[in-house]
Design a protein around this nucleic acid. Structure first.
Lengths: 234, 234
DNA sequence: GAATTTAGATACAACACTGTATCCAGATAC
DNA sequence: GTATCTGGATACAGTGTTGTATCTAAATTC
């Protein structure tokens, strides 16, 4: 009866934290709805159930709040990523399933791509913001590169270019398709988007490159090897 | 001496057209600089050397002007595309060179990607605008799909998915990388971007899919076959 | 429980932008 | 050359936004 109905009094710190949280949540909603540029400080405060005063006593400006919002989004993505891939991997199929889950999770969340797209648009013109965003993106890139390497080891294949490059390509493709879907759902429907993505994964990751010298290294399911790799990266 | 120094009098129609042209040019500049959302009608008019009155007597609002701008951009892209690919193709190498030229041309133009990105952001939230943009994008998609098919015939390969899908993927990748480069030039430099793109082209277009049944169909330079295909699609 | 902090509301002043209404001057028509 | 037309300038009213300055009520401290 205490946690829900009897709303316990919050001390200063808790109250402040709650306000920040609400403002951040509200900003995510409004940014997705109206876009960062056209969102006013008042929009955010009002959606969160406060007035502008509350906003300015918690953040210096809209941009600072956006950075904080993205930092939290990043943390969530990281958490989910680690949650999925820290467990020892049995085989390639399982890995593919997991990556599929991961991306469809991100994909399904409508806020996801639009929010990051907004961020990138802001970054194009805001030097300082760009530097911050760069850090976030590089983190994710490294994460995905790690996944790509794990995949390559699991499947015992090489892909003809560095894991880092593939990571960039993969992220670019995901985002590109996501956007295409979002601003032209007629021609780029869900099914199409997913097909392209999974096709890309299969085609690019596990393909022998130097066609004239090495024969196609088939996908090999070596459970022992897989487990070794997985626990190592753990 | 007449075309440059002696500025000949323009009749109404010509004058009007000139004004529209200047407003459109100016809008491209300002949209890239400040973004569509934060660009005011006054910004556009002033940059073009006019006042708001001129703007409103030529366009109903900012969005209508943006559509017109994109329509013209589309025409330019189409023109360039046809200019490159209508000539009979000798062989795969030449084709690859051409596609490389084409994309580096688009890529080099700083305005290009940012402008289209702005458009997509607008499309996410504006139903009517989205419908229009959809048409533009579908045109380009078809164009690229056509190229993919030509490529497949020239190289005598199959790629495991439809040309239309590949076109979507290719456009998505291009745009994604472009954006990544633009908002994080430190980690995604020009060289990297180009490498990834060309690697994608080579890897995805000419790769045998069903790894277990068909051996890798090598890239075959068959000049005669190539010419036949090229002239046919011409 | 009185004094002190402080989170957040309210009020305010300075701008910026839009869209329209009005006006003017040069181009065209007769 | 006079009348008309129209592209574009100017003025204005209305609305939205920002950042700060002030106020209040609750939370903390003693």
């Amino acid at each position: 009866m205490n946690s829900e109905t009897t709303r316990q009094r919050l001390n200063r710190e808790q109250s402040r934290e709650q306000t920040r949280e609400r403002l951040l949540d509200a900003s995510r909603t409004v940014f997705v709805q109206k876009g960062f540029a056209l969102t006013s400080v008042e929009d955010i405060a009002a959606t969160a159930g406060y007035t502008r005063g509350a906003f300015y006593s918690n953040f210096t400006d809209k941009t600072e709040l956006f950075v904080e919002l993205l930092r939290r989004e990043c943390e969530n993505i990281d958490r989910e990523f680690h949650h999925l891939f820290q467990a020892p991997l049995a085989d390639v199929v399982e890995l593919q399933e997991k990556i599929a889950n991961y991306y469809s999770g991100l994909y399904g969340d409508g806020a996801f791509s639009v929010l990051w797209m907004e961020a990138k648009i802001v970054a194009v013109r805001d030097e300082k913001f760009r530097a911050t965003l760069s850090l976030f993106l590089e983190e994710r890139r490294a994460q995905i590169a790690e996944f790509v390497e794990t995949y390559a080891r699991l499947t015992n294949t090489q892909s003809g270019t560095s894991a880092h490059h593939i990571a960039i390509g993969l992220m670019a493709l995901c985002e590109g398709i996501n956007i295409a879907h979002r601003c032209d759902p007629q021609n780029v429907d869900d099914k199409t988007a997913e097909e392209i993505l999974s096709w890309f994964l299969k085609t690019t990751l596990a393909m022998p490159q130097q066609a004239e010298q090495s024969p196609a290294a088939k996908v090999v399911k070596t459970k022992t090897a897989a487990r070794r790799v997985a626990s190592k990266s753990n």
